[in-house]
């Protein structure tokens, strides 16, 4: 697990008060890849806010993750164009293949899943993005194939 020292981030924000909560959380996630419990507790102590509040605010926004990203970070686009072209089925296929929900990371740490509103590649709908690489015209079968190839890659690289 990537653990990041939160203190330097908090120092960057100096005396900024509670209004800086979201930028601080963004900065933590930027560095850590997600928001760890320890980081949220520390941010809470720094700002004098209860952790329940930090967690409440963080869970309100889709952008925050609470588990480290997997080796393969899968983003499924659920924008309008993808939706029309059947992205709901694509998302279901990923969920079933990986047995995780959006926002979660598989136990082996290989995969994490995120739903994005519109990834800006409507011409490729329905589209999936894995570690920044786009996969166009996804179907249930293509999803299975893609995941298998990721697993192979991981096995090869040990």
């Amino acid at each position: 697990m990537i653990q990041v020292d939160v203190e330097p981030i908090l120092n960057e924000f100096g005396d900024a008060g509670r209004d800086a909560l979201i930028p601080i959380l963004q900065a933590v996630q930027e560095r850590q890849g997600y928001l760890s419990r320890e980081a949220m507790i520390e941010v809470g102590q720094h700002l004098g806010l209860p952790v329940s509040k930090i967690y409440g605010v963080a869970t309100f926004y889709n952008q925050f993750r609470f588990q480290p990203q997997g080796k393969f970070h899968i983003q499924v686009c659920r924008g309008t164009a993808c939706h029309v072209k059947g992205s709901a089925r694509v998302l279901d296929a990923v969920r079933q293949a990986l047995k995780i929900e959006p926002g979660q990371t598989s136990r082996d740490g290989l995969f994490s899943l995120e739903v994005v509103a519109c990834i800006g590649a409507c011409g490729l709908a329905p589209v999936i993005c894995v570690n920044g690489e786009f996969y166009a015209g996804m179907t249930t079968e293509k999803v299975d194939k893609l995941i298998r190839s990721c697993q192979r890659k991981a096995a090869e690289n040990g």
């Binding site: 209860p50 329940s52 509040k53 967690y55 409440g56 869970t59 309100f60 926004y61």
Partner: peptide
């Protein structure tokens, strides 16, 4: 105490 809050959206 503030041990509870709204979670999610």
């Amino acid at each position: 105490v503030a041990c509870i809050d709204f979670i999610g959206r």
